[in-house]
Amino acid sequence: MATTSESSSEKEETIFQGKVFNDPIHGHLELHPLLVKIIDTPQFQRLRFIKQLGGAYFVYPGASHNRFEHSIGVAHLAGELVRALRTRQPELGITDEDILCVQIAGLCHDLGHGPFSHLYENLFLLQHEKASIEMFDYLVKDNKVEEEMKKSGLDPTKDLDFIKEMIYGPLDTEVVQDNEWPYKGRSEDKSFLYEIVSNKRNGIDVDKFDYFARDCHHLGMKNNFDYHRFFHFARVCEVDGKKQICVRDKEEGNIYDMFHTRYQLHKSAYQHKVTKIIEAMITDAFVKADEHIKIESSEGKIFTLSTAIDDMEAYTKLTDRVFEQILFSSSTELKEAKQILMRIISRDLYMFLEEEKKPTKVITLDYGMKDENPVDRMNFYSKKNPDKADKLPKEKVKM
């Protein structure tokens, strides 16, 4: 049995092996050594070269931030929320292993993004969450991360599934019966853990908390949503037999501020007219360049811009840098694509879109769930009865 001094020494060594990141949004973040191990892989470092907001950088000069720092921020916030729940409700049985897995999911949730983020995803009909779990599998295998997981007390046989499920959802593609628990990584009594990184139930998760704050900061916009308050008042309650993350009834205004911030970001930046025109031009350039961009894997196989997603080693090499590769190319095969990108640089933008592209420019703004009010899927508890949560009274629901 280890002595007290030995235990203290081991704990100090673990802290020492971690790293402190100075983030412009969240301040100084201290990350576990296993998270640092993942960050220091080529697959994760690739995110340094993928713009968070795609073509919006050509409209907003401050929007130069990348998926790299966003992913670190999400890992941090995931840890903050799950630790807050454990401190407030020790009866939930949240373990150190749960916390570490939730943070890894936050860190790796965007590994699958391609050049200019959602632009590549929309162009090649890619689901970035699916690509993220494929890239995560490749990262784990290529860097022997399973060994590091075991050293940190994790069990790869179940925890790898748990991490991927938090990013993507149920991994089993077969139809799951309504009364059947669809996840393998954790049992149903920990269903609330699946609402932290990517909340399929109501869209309220730490991924949004980070990118709302980060995007507003770099765009020079105001963010009225206070995620610190959400963490302070978040609580797990049982609703219809399922454990869900709920919040105090008096916090409905803060939740509405979150969805209003989302609306404003889409209206002012993500769906900005010039942003969409520039992204249409980049899309045209990528389509023309597609078969002429050659990406080689270690086995000598050659992939193109559109097929690189079929091989994670090749995909690791595909980032926003392909824009400059085309822009500065002297290849006659890339001439047409280069001319389009030159027009972006010289601000000779498309004045209108061709007929076949008009449907893609019809933009409908909402609060994240089309005609449905997302707050209808959020449950609130009261100060008098913190263990019982329910929907807001109709008179308090607003759009």
Rank of each mutant, 00 (worst) to 15 (best):
E333C: 09
E134R: 10
L171P: 04
D161A: 12
T261C: 10
R83W: 00
D137S: 13
A234Y: 05
Q52I: 00
K383A: 12
E356V: 03
E299N: 14
P393T: 11
I50V: 11
E252C: 12
P386K: 08
L107H: 10
E313L: 09
G73L: 06
I340R: 12
I277V: 13
S346E: 08
D387M: 13
E121Q: 15
E180N: 06
E296K: 09
E129P: 02
E147I: 06
A131K: 04
D110N: 15
S64A: 07
K317F: 00
T4L: 12
A285Y: 08
D210M: 12
E6G: 00
K398E: 13
F328C: 10
F124C: 05
D390I: 00
E129M: 02
P42G: 03
K276I: 06
N373A: 11
R377I: 06
H228C: 11
F259L: 13
K200R: 14
D310W: 07
N199L: 03
C108A: 14
K144V: 00
R321I: 00
G18S: 11
E324Q: 13
I326E: 09
H272Y: 07
S71V: 12
I344W: 04
I133A: 04
D205S: 15
L34F: 02
Y381L: 08
M342P: 01
R67Y: 09
I245C: 06
K358N: 07
S152H: 07
F259N: 08
F233N: 15
D210T: 09
S329A: 11
I326K: 10
K130T: 08
K317A: 06
V239P: 03
L119P: 01
K338T: 03
M258W: 05
E129F: 02
S346D: 11
F352D: 15
K200V: 07
T3W: 06
I278D: 12
Y315P: 02
G55T: 02
H217L: 01
G114A: 05
E147K: 12
D240F: 00
S198N: 14
A337S: 13
L34Y: 03
V74M: 09
T283K: 14
P33L: 02
K338Y: 03
E355Q: 10
F124R: 11
I38P: 02
K208Q: 13
F58G: 06
L92W: 05
E12R: 15
K243I: 07
L193P: 02
I293P: 07
S132D: 03
H32L: 03
I25A: 04
G169M: 08
L219V: 00
V197W: 00
Q264I: 13
I94L: 03
K51D: 09
H260Q: 13
P359M: 10
C216K: 05
L81S: 04
S7G: 00
H266K: 15
S152W: 01
A84N: 07
K276D: 14
I345W: 01
A389R: 15
D290F: 01
V102S: 04
D376A: 13
K294P: 02
F58N: 15
I255S: 06
H260T: 14
L327E: 03
D348T: 02
H260L: 11
I302D: 09
H260Y: 12
G253L: 11
V236M: 10
F58Q: 14
Y367G: 02
